[in-house]
């Protein structure tokens, strides 16, 4: 698809500004979603092509604003919902429970 992910040759995305060093993960949730990707992939819930395509189907503005691991979260949620592995209600109920537990 002619999506926002197909970036090669575009102008205007600004400087790269590579920092001298950076941690492997910047937040705890990045660790969890990274590992969840391999765990759910190894469990046979999606293949890597489905995974990439679910990222490509993101809203373009959200894609550009979101970090790499936000893309991963989006993709895994999308695929597990589409395949019926989890339901929206199950996720929403769990989020509510986690909020209540604070």
């Amino acid at each position: 698809m002619n999506g926002i992910h197909d970036l090669g040759g575009m102008h205007g995305h600004g400087p790269i500004n590579p920092p001298p060093t950076e941690p492997v993960f910047s937040h705890e949730w990045e660790r969890r979603i990274f590992a969840l990707f391999i765990g759910a992939f190894g469990g046979g819930h999606y293949n890597v092509d489905e995974f990439r395509h679910a990222i490509e189907r993101m809203d373009p503005a959200e894609y550009l604003l979101g970090s790499y691991y936000e893309h991963w979260l989006h993709s895994i949620e999308t695929l597990l919902l589409e395949k019926g592995v989890v339901t929206r209600d199950e996720l929403d109920q769990k989020i509510a429970a986690l909020k209540g537990g604070h």
Binding site: M1, N2, D6, G8, G9, D49, R52, H53, E56
Partner: peptide, 12 residues
């Protein structure tokens, strides 16, 4: 080609 599906053929 301009497929609407997933492809790894970049536009450039």
């Amino acid at each position: 080609v301009n497929p609407a599906n997933h492809t790894r053929l970049p536009r450039y």
